[in-house]
Write a protein that binds this DNA or RNA. Structure first.
Lengths: 107, 107
DNA sequence: CTACTATTTCGCGGTTTTGCGAAATAGTCA
DNA sequence: TGACTATTTCGCAAAACCGCGAAATAGTAG
């Protein structure tokens, strides 16, 4: 007998996926996968207005994908969910038609 | 020197995440993780109108997350992207505060 | 062909994102 | 304190998404 996951859990998962469902936010995540970045660097990376980038970051933070830390005048963001980049590697592999069927993720 | 991923790749990834960003679609994915289902069974699972469920399924299919096969009168859907359930296990673990930092996903 | 079943497509209001500039906030430095 | 920098919040208009019922499509059985 299998037990279904709660509605609350589904909502929590959906929040993460929604946060990742924007190309510019994914670009930021890619940057952060390489290490900590201040907002100014992310603005350069996505070539969008400060207010827009800041909003994107708040969405990612709300979902628990990134965490921030203020140091001096700047705010630094870092990735808080390390399985995200490896999942994207799975997606890319699938898109390239690789045999993802036999591949295992998240041990 | 690190190379950035193309805009096309980001868009493709975002499409997958967007498809997964709805609780009812996640419920369907959960059902399908247990095995093939016809649309009628998924309608029961999410308790929504046929047209709504059908639309959800087309979104998932468009993103490459599920595949469909018609047999007789019914259409059967199955999961086409097996790393999805294991990624969600990672998300749940992170939400429960487990030490996801040290955990490896997608080898 | 007709009746029936399973599913998809269409079109419509209502809600939610998005991107931006303007204004607000906070930290630093003189 | 006042000037300056980095970042967030606010309010708006455009776009995208959501759920539904009605209509369309396809397959089956008689």
């Amino acid at each position: 007998m299998k037990t279904l996951v709660s509605r609350r859990t589904l909502d929590a998962r959906a929040l993460v996926f929604k946060a990742l469902s924007h190309p510019d936010r994914l670009r930021m995540v890619e940057e952060l996968a390489d290490g900590e970045r201040c907002v100014c660097e992310l603005v350069k990376a996505v070539e969008s207005a400060w207010s827009t980038v800041s909003r994107h970051l708040s969405v990612l933070k709300e979902a628990g994908i990134v965490a921030d830390q203020k140091r001096g005048l700047q705010v630094f963001y870092r990735l808080a969910l390390p399985c995200v980049p490896s999942f994207m590697a799975c997606l890319d592999a699938a898109r390239r038609g690789e045999a993802v069927e036999v591949r295992r993720c998240c041990g």
